[in-house]
Write a protein that binds this DNA or RNA. Structure first.
Length: 580
RNA sequence: GGGCGUGUAGCAUAGCCUGGAUAAUGCACUGGCCUCCUAAGCCAGGGACCGCGGGUUCGAAUCCUGCCGCGCCCGCCA
């Protein structure tokens, strides 16, 4: 109810000017009501008790009496327990709602555009995509869409693991297996096996291990044939990633790839510049940065950010520092977001601190670790990839689609086979994504098929069902959807008013979601809206309304509701089916 | 040991940044509602010492502090 506060606040200041309170004081008290049933906006008057030398209850009554006339037609005032309560007047609410009818953006304003790099997904070449990549990919995609919608220039960066020592063994294994065979057979799947085979040969077969080590040297020396083999692995992997991205319906494509290999020429420069800034220290033959402060290890000794190992190799931190240089200096971005799991929190804190101290970033740049929790199984255990036993992302998505298909087949026999296939994908993928997005990303969440695919509760299928119901109304409506832009909306029933509130609050909710990089806030709002629609749907006949004006008004509400749901879900990367 | 995070009905969560009312939502549970736009729904109801103790405040789930439980991180891996 941001808009209501904006309208009311000046009127309230003016009305209370005769009282011995400052505008700031009153302003600090006006806020959204904590209990939506009591009011939209509230002024708790308890702290004014001393100034007025009266009880909070009397103060509230006095303020209410004074402000009520000026709020005529905007808000309905009342008092209880020392609160002045303002409830949106249906007239104000309806005019606000009507103003959104012709607005494609449903009241969402664009911000002054910033250039924002979002680093997310980050699968590894020649390895399977698993549940951990799911979270990064889905959350990152939603954040990218939110920021774009708010008018920002977003640069997607998929920092794939395509460089480093494992490629020695991977390339040798590729040679052993035969590259033609590999390229043909590895379309979708089975990277896990390939990687495991290479790994076990590396540990069991010393001849292979020697070849692998020699191959790493060749790779780093950019030997032509080695690079070509490396490229085979990268190409097959990225086309696999693209298949998964296509299945998931996320924005990532080949243009967004910026693998570790892309930064390798910057690595010596990182060392040089850290050295020039005086941060670099030699420690046991390695080059490191000691940040001091709270960064101590188990023994209480300061522990370092490793920049260059004693063997001359570079480290993860070095690569991330190179990224920062590239993003700040080549892309000249204002903001750097890293959609990466919480376990790496400390790593990013340290890297950002080094980057600031070394002047790779200045005060105008902000680097934010958009962290997320782990996906747990039903026993509360982490689904880890390296331990093996990880769930392959493609299998998981396929299963979700298949389960969704069964669920809709049980419920609606009118759908053709073709429609069932199409809609199963929308619902299956939507369910997985929404389950991931709808709770606070920083917390762990338990992966539960039954819950995410339930058509009840705060789930994608429930929201999609609301949208499908509205679409059904329009398919039966005598009034076309396009002709509703100028419709007079009248909010007679309580259910209509509650629905209108949700529609009006959409922009505020999106703003909060986008500014905090917390997609679940938007999810909560879409669910509240769908729920308000379901109550409205029961209580207020639309195309069966007796009066034509009422029908048009309700159709307009349906149109806005559908747009809140589909725009909201769209920003989360989830589709809204017109039937299901 | 140090650092970070987390703890809210049987279960899963929101609210915590920015203190405000009888702590909100969903699942599950109980009871109602389909000759009527998709009942995949709606309505009503029961269910919570907001981990525990102190502090700040007129007022604390929210801020501060101390404990306790759980998790993660602290590698010349990424």
């Amino acid at each position: 109810m941001r808009d209501l506060i904006e309208v009311c606040a000046p009127l309230i200041y003016e009305s209370v000017s005769e009282f011995p309170v400052s505008e700031e004081h009153i302003s600090s008290l006006i806020g959204p009501a904590t209990d939506g049933r009591m009011a939209d906006v509230a002024i708790p008057c308890h702290s004014l008790s001393g100034v007025f030398k009266k009880s909070p209850i009397e103060v509230a009554e006095e303020i209410c009496r004074v402000i009520s006339p000026s709020l005529e037609g905007v808000a309905i005032t009342s008092t209880i327990n020392g609160f002045v309560n303002l409830k949106a007047d249906p007239r104000w609410l309806s005019s606000k709602t009507m103003s959104l009818l012709p607005d494609e953006r449903l009241g969402v304003k664009k911000e002054i555009s910033r250039k924002i790099v979002v680093d997310y997904s980050a699968p590894n070449v020649a390895k399977e995509m698993h549940v951990g990549h799911l979270r990064s990919t889905v959350i990152g995609d939603a954040i990218v869409r939110m920021l774009q919608f708010k008018g920002h220039q977003v640069i997607r960066e998929n920092h794939i693991g395509d460089w480093g020592t494992p490629f020695g063994m991977l390339i040798e294994h590729l040679i052993d297996e035969g590259e033609e065979k590999f390229a043909l057979e590895k379309g979708i799947s089975d990277f896990d096996n390939f990687y495991k085979e290479a790994r076990s040969k590396f540990s069991d077969d010393s001849e292979f291990a020697n070849r692998a080590r020699a191959r790493v040297v060749l790779l780093q020396g950019e030997d032509e044939d080695t690079l070509r083999l490396w490229k085979v692995l990268v190409d097959v992997s990225t086309s696999y990633f693209n298949e998964v991205y296509g299945m998931l319906g996320v924005l990532l494509d080949n243009d967004d790839l910026m693998g570790e290999s892309a930064y390798k020429h910057l690595l010596p420069q990182v060392v040089e510049r850290l050295d020039e800034s005086g941060l670099l220290v030699e420690s046991n033959g390695a080059s490191v940065v000691f940040l001091g402060g709270k960064w101590v290890n188990r023994e209480g000794q300061p522990f370092p950010v490793m920049i260059r190992k004693a063997d001359g190799g570079y480290n993860y931190s070095t690569s991330d520092l190179a990224c920062i240089i590239d993003r700040v200096e080549r892309l000249s971005c204002d903001e750097l977001l890293y959609v990466v799991g919480t376990p790496q929190k400390q790593h990013f804190e340290m890297v950002f601190e080094v980057a600031k101290k070394a002047g790779f970033m200045n005060d105008t740049h902000s680097a934010i670790h958009v962290n997320f929790g782990s996906v747990l199984d039903s026993n509360g255990q982490m689904l880890k990839s390296r331990a093996g036993q990880s769930v392959k992302l493609v299998d998981l998505l396929r299963e979700s689609i298949s389960r969704a298909g069964q669920a809709i087949a049980e419920r609606n026999s009118e759908l053709s086979d073709e429609e069932t296939v199409r809609i199963s994908k929308i619902i299956g993928i939507g369910a997985v994504k929404y389950a991931d997005l709808s709770t606070d990303r920083a917390k762990d969440y338990v992966f539960d098929w039954d819950r995410m695919l339930s058509f009840e509760g705060n789930t994608a299928p429930y929201l999609q069902y609301s949208y499908a119901r509205i679409s059904r109304i329009f398919s039966l409506s005598p009034i076309s959807r396009d002709s509703l832009k100028e419709t007079k909306i009248e909010l007679l029933a309580e259910e209509e008013q509650n629905l209108a509130r949700c529609i009006v609050n959409f922009s505020e909710s999106l703003d909060q979601s986008a500014s905090s990089f917390h997609p679940h806030k938007l999810c909560t709002h879409i669910h509240t809206t769908s729920s308000a629609f379901a109550s409205f749907y029961e209580a207020c006949p639309v195309i069966k309304a007796d009066d034509e004006g009422v029908m048009a008004s309700r159709l307009a509400l349906c149109d806005l509701t559908a747009r809140v749901i589909s725009t909201g879900l769209g920003i989360l990367g989830i589709q809204s089916p017109e039937m299901m």
